[in-house]
Nucleic acid binder design. Structure first.
Lengths: 210, 210
DNA sequence: AGCACGTTTCTAGCATCGCTAGATTTCCAT
DNA sequence: ATGGAAATCTAGCGATGCTAGAAACGTGCT
């Protein structure tokens, strides 16, 4: 290793890494756009490579395979969903209002980013969830729910309470998106769900007489 | 058309139709078994045709394509799920017990028939759901839920109440099956869900003081 | 009985998929 | 300028769902 390698070589290496990172993001963005525009079935390695103007094998120098690309898009989704939910409870609503705000934000997010939502919750991404290796964005999303809803758990364990609430939201999204539930009365279903989870009864009796 | 055609011809035609129907069921059964044994990805037209000992184009004389085969399996699933749920409420439980019985039956069914459940609720089958063309097995499944749970809807419209309950169940199944929720505490999550939907509060106050 | 015709079934192949080995080019350090 | 490592591409493999056209079959008539 010469002095040039030590002085200039490093910056060349850094530039290459920068370019690599840029191309990495290019792939993720292309996958996301393609999925959002024409569905995940339209996201093929050939189309992706065409979009980024590189050949297909380049994709495999960034990701182990297609599922890892989907996983990268899903991670973006978790970050954005967490931000959306945090915003929804930024002004500190409590009781029923908090549940309604979170649930509304969640359903809105799913409605506005269908492909992104699929990457997060439907497709196989290989992302570890309830695991010591769970990526930060996932953890933060769950914690946002926990911070706001944990207090409404009543006699149930907060974490379980949140998981069940999340499941219900996901069920609504999932069944509606796949045509199993008519989209028409989605907002009324949301009301029913919020009523059930907003602790009508013991913990927060200020919402409705019991 | 001769007398033979009028007397014997019909029975020949009937025999052919019987054989066709038999082969039809053979395809559906093969698809289901293959899916339950090795997942839906392993259900390919080539493997199916090998199982039924006919060439691939024969499949397309019975079904428009693979999705219609999945749909046929899904239909079987709805019939069986409905039967399972009916059995669960056969001895007429009420209030919390009814909710727990139905939810337990549902989750058990999903756990015991993962591929079947996927065909019903995850995969694209082209089956019409909330539609005038909704097949009978689907309708009956929903009605079973409605008959038992409608009374617990409280101030909500029964149909919506049931849809939301169903969504929550599906959410639990879906997130658990895909590894998003740890399988470990599934039964405690079920308890939390039942608590929320068993009308703790106004309609059925005999379950828990309010 | 034998033949003609309609139906059923099969062979063969298309376009596309995810993915990869090996050739080829590019670029850096000398 | 040039050798060699790193980056990139060409070409192709084994699958997939699905289909057109050829071959085989069996029915019903003479």
């Amino acid at each position: 290793m010469s002095s040039t390698a030590r002085i200039q070589g490093m910056s060349v290496q850094e530039r290459k890494e920068r370019e690599r990172a840029h191309r990495h993001q290019l792939i993720v963005a292309a996958a996301r756009e393609l999925a959002e525009a024409h569905g995940w079935d339209a996201v093929t390695t050939r189309r992706l490579s065409e979009r980024i103007e590189y050949s297909q094998p380049v994709l495999y120098s960034h990701f182990r395979g297609k599922r890892e690309i989907v996983g990268a898009v899903a991670l973006e989704g978790f970050t954005e969903l967490t931000a959306t939910m945090r915003e929804a409870v930024a002004n500190g609503p409590e009781g029923r209002a908090a549940v309604a705000a979170l649930a509304g934000a969640y359903l809105d997010f799913a409605e506005r980013n269908p492909a992104l939502y699929d990457a997060m919750f439907l497709l196989d991404t290989g992302l570890p969830f309830a695991d010591e290796a769970t990526p930060a964005p996932l953890r933060e999303g769950f914690e946002t729910l926990l911070n706001t809803l944990g207090a409404l758990a009543g006699s149930a364990e907060p974490a379980l309470f949140v998981e069940v609430f999340w499941s219900a939201l996901h069920g609504l999204v999932s069944l509606t998106r796949s045509g199993r539930l008519p989209r028409q009365e989605a907002s009324r279903r949301l009301d029913v769900l919020v009523d059930r989870f907003a602790g009508r009864g013991c913990p927060d009796a200020h919402t409705r007489s019991c």
